[in-house]
Design a protein around this nucleic acid. Structure first.
Lengths: 141, 141
DNA sequence: TTCCTTGCAAAACATTTGCATTTCT
DNA sequence: AGAAATGCAAATGTTTTGCAAGGAA
């Protein structure tokens, strides 16, 4: 990783290593706040801006991308080889990934047929996950 | 529309009518600022908060939904009967809609097979649109 | 009259940036 | 030494809210 960054003109630092390590260990879609909290547990001298800047850096070097689910908070998602979509549970706020290789293929076709050259895809579904089907609060509305 | 709102417990006002009318006339994905500007052309006494609140109201009564493309600005998109996806051109920032009925069907299947009950779908593609293929600035990178 | 709406200004929030200082190479 | 990174605090930019006044039902 240190080498990888060097080729891109960036340096490695203790803070950066901790942030990167924490981000990649966490197999989730974290926000700056969440990662900041986590990183803080191991080094409470790290600043918020540093976490933010490194998250941006991770995106810049192509290892992650920003995800926006509409709650005003930007999350960061590792970029994996397999294109995937997200199932957002509106009850527990959980996120599940689903493989969408096939769909992306179809989408690319549809886009191409309109002269549009696709770059990246975002496929998101909102709904209620398996575990939450029973526990929707009993508000009559 | 007035009747429709009344059934939901809301009143009709001149401002609200102008805002609703402007929103639905504009067959686009407008931001609060954009709609505010447009509405202002016809009544420059309308406040920003009023436009914002009415846009939220339109969503609340189920006639539109918020769209987030990651530039920090929330846009509002009419909800149409036919599910559609968006092609965002990263050059001209234009938005094109594409029909994704078929894809949504497949997506719903995939979600259901995991015990997830879909509620709404968001399908977005970023790339370069037909008209912009030639005009990408000549930066060697 | 009652409750919803409006406008304005201020608050709340998340995201970014400036800068002096420290740390890599 | 030279360039990049860090921390803190402050600046941005957008979205929300409080409140007094006005308007619809």
């Amino acid at each position: 990783m240190k080498e990888f960054l060097k080729t891109k003109g960036f340096k490695m630092t203790p803070q950066r290593e901790l942030i990167f390590r924490s981000f990649f260990e966490l197999d989730e879609h974290v926000s700056v706040d969440e990662l900041y909290d986590r990183v803080r547990q191991q080094d409470n001298s790290i600043g918020y801006a540093t976490v933010w800047r490194n998250l941006k850096l991770i995106c810049k070097v192509g290892l992650a991308e920003e995800v926006n689910i509409g709650d005003g908070i930007t999350r960061y998602d590792r970029i994996t080889k397999v294109p995937h979509g997200h199932l957002f549970c509106t009850v527990c706020k959980g996120v599940t990934e689903i493989n969408v290789e096939q769909l992306v293929g179809l989408l690319a076709q549809a886009a191409n047929s309109r002269g549009f050259t696709p770059d990246s895809f975002k496929i998101e579904v909102q709904g209620v996950c398996d575990g939450c089907h029973g526990k929707v609060e009993g508000n009559g509305q």
